[in-house]
Design a protein around this nucleic acid. Sequence first.
DNA 1: ACGAGATCCTTGCGCGCGCAACCTTTTCTT
DNA 2: AAGAAAAGGTTGCGCGCGCAAGGATCTCGT
Lengths: 163, 163
Amino acid sequence: MDSPLHDERLTLAGLFFESYAGLASSLGRRLEAECGLTVQWFEVLMRLARSPEGRLRMSDLTAQVTLTPSGLTRVIDRLEAAGLVSREACPTDRRGSLAVLTEQGRARMEVAVPIHLGHLEDLFTGVLDDEERVQLEHALRKVRDRVNPCATAGVADPAAHVG
Amino acid sequence: MDSPLHDERLTLAGLFFESYAGLASSLGRRLEAECGLTVQWFEVLMRLARSPEGRLRMSDLTAQVTLTPSGLTRVIDRLEAAGLVSREACPTDRRGSLAVLTEQGRARMEVAVPIHLGHLEDLFTGVLDDEERVQLEHALRKVRDRVNPCATAGVADPAAHVG
DNA sequence: ACGAGATCCTTGCGCGCGCAACCTTTTCTT
DNA sequence: AAGAAAAGGTTGCGCGCGCAAGGATCTCGT
């Protein structure tokens, strides 16, 4: 049983992917059913809600969410069609576009965030005790830094912006 | 900063999703470049390779990989077109279909598995020490059991833990 | 034994995403 | 100051997936 087909690294990775898939799927189903929001939508609206005046450049948004520029364009298209976001011209760079949270968008998030937090607690953080959460965060941070070194910026954290 | 928009549960979940996305994307790119295999393909071929005689019913495969029956049908279609898998009739149930690893498929996996293990080591398990790996596995197992209780079957892994 | 319902797999369809190509605007080079 | 190169965003296209519907086969109650 020490064949490469049963290597412990495969087991750990499998567990990781399986956990992710299950979590994303359950979370997505509930969020959609109770808030009418996709996980992607939530993610984008979240980043906007965290930003000053609820506005962010497309390129900044692209860097924060796991999405290519073209993917983000479509998401914003749909969010705009749904009335949750609107586009504005960037005042300092005429190439640029700003995504801004509408009143309706903010209202939706004020409902959705607590609900989503409940789901998270129920399906994810609730099954771990404090120590386990700390250890998990530690391990995930190391992995994240390995596979995505240029993260650690973004999130409305004024002390962290690189270029 | 204690607004629901900065809840620690969101941070942990964000870290989880970000790690997953980065890992899946890096792993996928490398596997494709060096072995000509999608992560999905690898996953399916892996399950087959682990099974006696390299054969498995579609329904069993569906249960093991994160894919709906229709999704699996298409994957097997492509794998069959690529000559890595073939279909056989199920001898005990005429509704059923068996996916079986071809010689070519097995040969491909004999090359791909060690390469993939290397990538895993490089991008994932290598950044963690023994204790961190154990802790991560522990936490992930709890999450997996919460979101996907009916796993813990299949895999021909006698050491698989129940939760 | 027979029909109702469940199970297995496949197909039509639509959706969301990434890639590459494109246009516009900014920045760099000289 | 002018041309070259880079960056920001959007679109055409194709792909892989899930959902719902469908045909074939098995199972179970009577």
